[in-house]
Amino acid sequence: MPGRRLRTAAVLLVALGMLTACAQPAPAQSSPRVTASIPFADEEAARAAVEDAYSRYEETADAVAHDGGKAPERYEAVAMGSALEEGLRAAEQYTEAGARADGATRVESVQIQRVDSTDRLNAVTAYVCVDVSEVDVVDSSGRSLVSPDRDPRVLFLVTAGFDADVLKISKRSVWADQC
């Protein structure tokens, strides 16, 4: 049984690293829409749009993880493609393990890697640095499942694309353990 508990904790820690889930619940109404046209007016406009879209993604991840994985369909408003699949899987893991997240993730910086005015589904790729130092994942008894050796900041490579006129996160992967 201790081996199963360690595997469950490991799965949740991976989910935390990928979700950077936090305690800020999403509002009951739908998330605000980010509208933009391709091409963006300039790189700063693309950066601001990605920062807004990624912040909405994190707010949703925060809310779902805070609620122990309940109502994962909230991801549909902010994610598509593999990012949506990732969020739904992580929510399922939280639910199955009886875990939830506490704390807040902060987006620290966004740096544009590429803007593609010809590809609406992969319009912008950026490096996004998040601070997870205030985030904890706890089991049903309130015991932390986060390693005390966890890096407090994580760098993600994020791709955002348009679903109709809404900029959503379509891909996300850990680029580096620190940023």
Rank of each mutant, 00 (worst) to 15 (best):
A9Y: 08
P148Y: 01
D163T: 13
L84Q: 04
E76W: 07
T20P: 02
A53F: 03
E76T: 10
A46L: 05
A49V: 13
R7Q: 10
E92C: 12
T20A: 09
E85R: 15
Q93G: 04
Q178M: 02
A53W: 03
T118S: 15
A77W: 08
A45I: 04
S55V: 09
E43K: 06
A65T: 06
M18F: 05
D116W: 13
D151M: 06
K171R: 15
D42C: 01
S141K: 13
G103A: 07
Y127M: 06
F40Y: 10
A104N: 11
V138G: 08
F156R: 02
E43H: 05
V146E: 00
A23I: 02
G161W: 01
R47C: 05
T125G: 06
R56Q: 13
V146T: 02
A71Y: 13
D165Y: 09
A79R: 01
P25A: 12
A23D: 10
V154K: 00
S31Q: 07
R106G: 12
I38K: 12
G161K: 01
D116H: 13
L88D: 09
V78M: 04
A53G: 03
E51L: 07
R143G: 12
S30D: 13
A99E: 00
C179T: 06
V14D: 07
L16A: 13
